[in-house]
Simulated scan of single mutants.
Amino acid sequence: MNTSHAFDLDAPPLGARALPAATDHAFQALRWAELIGPHAIDEISALTPLPRTNAGWVGAYLHLARGARTAGRDFDAVVYERAAQFFMSGDDPRRFPIRERFVDFMRHRFSRYPVGVPCDGAVLAAYDLPARGLGPGEEPHSTWVVFGGFDSYIEEWFPLLDAVARRGHRVIAFDGPGQGGVLEEQGVPLVAEWERPVSAVLDHFDLSDVTLVGLSLGGELVIRAAAFERRAKRVVAWDVMNDFLDVLMQQVAPVPPHVGRALSGLPGVLVDGLLALASRRPVVQWGLEQGMRVTSSKSPAQFLRFAGRLRTREVSEQVRGDVLLLAGRRDHYVPLPQLNRQARALTGARSVTTRVFNDAEGCAAHCQVGNLGLAVRTILAWEEPLLHRD
């Protein structure tokens, strides 16, 4: 395997190096820079003028991609293109060619190719990363089963997951309904019943004892899946999320959770009208359009009603495994109170551990972007004694 851009779990944190940009644009820039390397922050910061709109960021990232490709930095180029694609509208004709280039490149770079897993009429793309760094005859320390959230491709995580495999853990990573190629190529929208794709993957690979890891919105989906899937012996919500509607409303119009839920229950015409007012902010309009595309909703009101189903309160008590809940002190997506709410609700879990990351650690943001290595080391340290417990 070509090991350039191999992720070093012990590298110094990239940190939350500030950009003079809106919070979400700055966060996304840090997200892509964590893949590319610290020089990406310098390249992005040098943009003049720094973009202020989604369309401006699309053009800026494509400009950086062209420069990287001219310089022979093909890895950087496809990541910059993926960054541009992230902010494109769903009907932008550039989206799919960029996806194809990115996915093909990552598969070849890391020598990982998908296995098709049938699930409810769809075919999930799952990747099997074998454990490495083991002695002769030594079994993998554990098997991780990993999935993303609302808008990532699982191939984005190859550098990080490959680093976990190099530590002696087998990693099965997949996109489910509403994610990656399952959405983009098959048109299969997100489902709330996440135990279905998880069970399909566990069945396909004949797994009986796994560490189940959900990223971003996956922090909600992982709890839902673990409530129904007893083979999830260890459960990691990276980050915690117990109520997606609460998360969504914080972006649209910050209100208490009960108010957001009441609004989502109003007649659709009224909800659409209220959201039309909120969506005068371009980032809100983009988010609603993205949400409708991912969930195959016909209106913003329908999307909000679906978002209301993505919560864990009704199923948390059914989780029986050991649970690790991660959170960022300054997560601008997930309100921090969701951490304690989720921890208190896991009344049937074998154990519940919480970890809040702060500014000094360089990863107080969503999903510990800025110091992903610390997040992985935290999971490994939490998991290790559980693997040897009677």
Score class of each variant (00 low, 15 high):
D8Y: 00
A11M: 10
T23W: 12
F27I: 01
Q28Y: 06
A29Q: 08
R31P: 11
E34S: 04
L35S: 05
L35I: 03
L35F: 05
T48G: 08
V58W: 01
Y61T: 03
R66C: 05
T70W: 04
R73D: 05
D76S: 06
V78W: 04
E81D: 05
A83C: 02
Q85R: 06
F86K: 02
F87L: 07
M88D: 07
R95E: 03
R95I: 11
V115H: 06
G116S: 11
V117Y: 02
C119T: 09
V123D: 03
L129Q: 00
P130V: 07
G133F: 08
V146W: 11
V146D: 07
F147Y: 10
G148C: 03
F150L: 15
Y153A: 04
D162E: 11
R170I: 00
G181E: 15
V182Y: 10
A192W: 09
D203A: 03
D203T: 03
D209K: 12
V213S: 07
V213H: 11
G218R: 13
V222W: 11
F228K: 11
K233T: 15
A237V: 01
W238Q: 06
N242Y: 13
V252T: 14
A253Y: 15
A253E: 14
V255L: 12
P256A: 05
S264R: 12
G265N: 10
G268A: 14
V269C: 11
A276I: 14
L277R: 13
L277S: 12
R281L: 12
G287D: 13
L288F: 15
L288E: 12
R293E: 15
R293Q: 15
T295P: 15
S297P: 15
A301C: 14
Q302P: 15
V319F: 00
R320N: 09
V323R: 07
L325G: 06
L326E: 07
G328E: 02
G328A: 06
R329P: 00
R330M: 00
D331N: 03
D331I: 02
D331G: 01
H332I: 01
L336D: 14
L339K: 02
N340L: 05
R341M: 07
A343Y: 03
N358V: 02
C367W: 06
C367R: 06
G370E: 00
L372Y: 00
L374T: 00
T378L: 02
T378F: 02
I379L: 01
P385N: 04
L386V: 08
H388R: 10
